[in-house]
């Protein structure tokens, strides 16, 4: 019997790739939402800077923090671009694997029915190529997990900044109300992103 015929049964691999595709599609949807929310943060950070400028010397502390929040929102955007890129790579790979699995199943049946034919050799090549796809997907999975961890840490830092801004807002005298509102909204959004990222990290796509 050739190696092609003893490699793992594609009928077992197919549900795995199918489940992976469903999970990665769900992650993709969640990341799209986080990306959309992150975009709001950019605008909020700009608002905070304008408000701090108007408040001038009455909100110096808030002014410093608003610049930090702006830097944070830009870093967050870069993180989101990385996450989007990786998730697309993952979706591509899993969908190609699903297509391969179908072809390999048909070639495996052909090789079993015609053991003397070249079907086994063709299947061997395809199995090798499939193995490479699996390795690539595993690498994407690891990179994605790391990128999520990095983003999560950064968002936690953003949360600290937002909370400090809330405290500084109290010293803003006549602007205190407006500053409290901006920093409160900022804090709310950061918390929203943090919760989403936390659930993403727990996805079965990473935990198996």
């Amino acid at each position: 019997m050739t190696t092609a015929l003893t490699t793992p049964d594609s009928s077992l691999q197919a549900p795995r790739a199918g489940t992976d595709l469903l999970r990665i599609v769900r992650i993709n949807e969640e990341i799209k939402q986080v990306v959309a929310v992150s975009f709001k943060i950019n605008i909020m950070a700009l608002n905070a800077i304008f408000l701090a400028k108007r408040a001038g010397t009455t909100a110096l502390g808030f002014g410093v923090l608003s610049n930090e929040l702006r830097a944070f929102s830009q870093d967050l955007r870069t993180c989101m671009e990385t996450l989007s890129g990786l998730i697309h790579e993952g979706v591509d790979e899993v969908s190609l694997m699903l297509q391969d699995l179908r072809f390999n199943r048909l070639l495996r049946e052909a090789a079993e029915l015609a053991p003397q034919s070249r079907a086994s050799a063709v299947l061997d090549n395809r199995d090798t190529a499939f193995g490479r796809r699996e390795e690539h997907l595993a690498a994407v999975r690891r990179q994605l997990r790391r990128a999520l961890d990095d983003t999560f840490r950064m968002v936690e830092l953003g949360g600290v900044l937002a909370k400090s801004a809330k405290i500084e807002a109290a010293y803003g005298q006549g602007f205190a109300g407006a500053l409290a509102q901006v920093s409160g909204e900022f804090d709310g959004i950061v918390e929203e992103i943090r919760t989403s990222l936390e659930s993403l990290r727990r996805s079965a796509f990473f935990t198996g």
Binding site: F103, L106, L107, E109, A110, E112, A114, S117
Partner: peptide, 9 residues
């Protein structure tokens, strides 16, 4: 494609 194995063999 579903009948490929039968035709091929």
């Amino acid at each position: 494609s579903e009948i490929f194995p039968a035709v091929f063999s």
